[in-house]
Amino acid sequence: MWEYSDKVKEYFFNPRNAGALADANAVGEVGSLSCGDALKLMLKVNPETNIIEDAKFQTFGCGSAIASSSALTELIIGKSIDEARKLTNQDIADFLDGLPPEKMHCSVMGQEALTAAVAAYTGETLEDDDHEEGALICKCFGVDAGMIERAIRTNKLTTLEMVTFYTKAGGGCNSCREPLEELLADTNKAMVAEGLIAADEAYVFGAAPKPVKKKATGFVIPDLKPAPAAAPAAPAPVQIAMPAPAPAPAPAPVAVAEAPTKYSPAKEAIVVSKIIEEMRPVFNADGGDVELVDMEGSLVLVHLSGACSGCQLASHTLGGLQKKITEALGRMVRVMPVAKT
């Protein structure tokens, strides 16, 4: 059985505002029968003040779908249309003291029904959105197959590490490694067929890791030219947006057992700041930011802000950053988050 919070249970067993609203003047209907949930949100909006005076719902769905719908009505009654527009699915989940990752789509459905109802009230047209994103692959961070596939295609990812770096999938308990490998291999295979990547770049399921190519001479600054932003095939997912104008993950040259220092400290700082710039969209995508504070010997000090500060995932994401910098500089560095002084 799912681990529902007490508040989810309370709003499921004793839902507020369930049923039809006779004098509704804005109705939003969303859902998909095939995925087993549908929501009809009915609003009574005061045309003078644009205040939502009453709201009711009818939901076909599981316990958390019903609880999310009910929570949505509680959140918007008394709010103005403009205030309601700002409501996110996370607000619904927070109101319920959280939802299991597999159930976050219930909160998304609530937010979408609200968008549809507001559009009905204001007369705007609504773009079709399909929130089904395929099977949930990474349960730790709630990343589904659709999102991963888009990230692989948009950014031409060919290694598991990069998939984890861009989507977080596989960055937690790592138990989704097998389906993740399969998805990467399948997507790469299709990309080879479409001419998007070369056959020898494609990830092959179950293949032994490729030997690290030793660089012949000298050091090459990674080509940091951002790739032209590939238009995502579908609208960005509501929950976790992908970095839209993503940089091409240029294969970072790997320096092994070569001269420890290749650059002057000033040149190193330039390389490091370029790498941080390149990775910034990944941090931005999660609602946070990263900036370089200082470099001291083997320490690269960065400042994390927004959603990234205090996030348990930060250490994971920083690990990726550390690896890139280490590879680029050809010497071991440690990336440490610090407070801004």
């Binding site: 087993g36 769905g61 958390s64 159930k103 949930l136």
Partner: peptide
């Protein structure tokens, strides 16, 4: 056999 008890979206 419903979707929502098994973690998949399909019945």
């Amino acid at each position: 056999g419903s979707a929502c008890t098994s973690g998949s979206l399909e019945p």
